[in-house]
Nucleic acid binder design. Structure first.
Lengths: 214, 214
DNA sequence: ACCTGAACACCGTTCAAGT
DNA sequence: ACCTGAACACCGTTCAAGT
């Protein structure tokens, strides 16, 4: 997206343009993410972004938080989509379908936004950074937590501390996402369908087994 | 560890010195890991390391692989230690004790080697890098796999594809480690004992429940 | 065979000066 | 109020030259 050549000295909304450009660069593979390159692509001098962000970390923080918002939105969409589907065929196990749909939405997000995902959790921002102190970073976890609590209420999920179960879900999904991105869980290393199998283990630890003991 | 002042023009074993210095720097918090700083601390010119490593990535790769070796060793030690303890009081559930000991060893390793752990899995090496193609990166997984297979044989672990169960363990531990390092699982966010609770969920998904159905 | 010093192309960041 | 250009201190990497 090269800027219009007749763009005036004052960029209309450089702050937004910088964020958008940076976001595109992240998802375009291979590009070394440098502030100077962002400025170049946005068609401004390399010093211009400093009028809108105190430093590089501030821009990265903003982008990471947008990533967390998108992840949360994806999980909400997947969860309620699965619920709608399940209700139409009244099979009963809505909750499990919802859980699995949310899990897949999470994994898909990671697969489709590699660099953004790594940025969200990466150490580039310094540990204990602003991003992870922001409530927006907990969005996906909140959705999982809500789902688990509804599941405990309707009897499909084991009665255990729900926050612990949510932590287990998040950790499992985070781990699977990153190990997959690292190429550590592909077929020749760990056999076919390792991710599916791992999700099955998680499920078995969460759902209440049938109590009937014929 | 400043080098002896009478050190001659030719460093005895610069390759090893560079690796050791780099390892120390990683575990010393806050230090910006730069090749020039490594050379400085090792007491040589910033160009010297290039006689022993083609580039910075090669040094980082070597260090990351050492990290994987140490992680594997820690898990072996923890697992066999727990087995020895369990056998002395013949309680039967050796396998669960072994599993939990290995899990804790993994989490401890991450807590005590923050920067090294992030390097081992980080994107600094470029995705699909040499490190993750090396069999040494799968060391910890192999140990977990062996433990699970023994557990299936003696009936304490559910009969499921063991490689999938191992993937689930690894992902859960990796996720818990990183989320903790990121400060995303501490008490004020997710309640006390979230890590413990998550491990309990993993366990419930892995161990064979008592079959008796009085 | 191993190491150094100067050099190159890059960054992030700052700041006086421009519009 | 917003942007630029030159400048500073740093990197990773290379290479002719030193020991």
């Amino acid at each position: 997206m090269p800027p219009a050549e007749d763009r005036p000295y004052h960029h209309g909304d450089l702050r937004r343009a910088v964020i958008d450009t940076a976001m595109e660069m992240l998802n375009a593979a291979g590009s070394e993410f440098t502030l100077r390159e962002v400025a170049r692509r946005a068609g401004v001098s390399h010093a211009a972004p400093y009028k809108h962000f105190p430093d590089k970390a501030a821009l990265l923080t903003e982008i990471a938080l947008i990533g967390f918002d998108r992840l949360r939105a994806a999980m909400i969409a997947a969860g309620s989509g699965a619920l709608a589907d399940a209700r139409s065929d009244r099979a009963g196990s809505d909750r499990v379908a919802e859980l699995m749909a949310m899990a897949r939405a999470y994994l898909d997000f990671g697969r489709d936004n590699t660099a953004l995902y790594r940025l969200m959790f990466g150490a580039e921002l310094g540990q204990n950074c602003r991003v992870h102190r922001d409530p927006r970073a907990m969005g996906a976890l909140d959705e999982v937590l809500g789902m688990l609590e509804r599941g405990q209420a309707d009897g499909t999920i084991r009665r255990r501390p729900a926050r612990g179960q949510a932590a287990a879900c998040w950790a499992q999904l985070h781990g699977l996402t990153l190990l997959t991105l690292d190429g550590l869980l592909n077929a020749e290393k760990v056999g076919d369908g390792a991710v599916e199998a791992a999700l099955a283990v998680l499920l078995e630890g969460l759902v209440q087994p049938a109590t009937a003991c014929a």
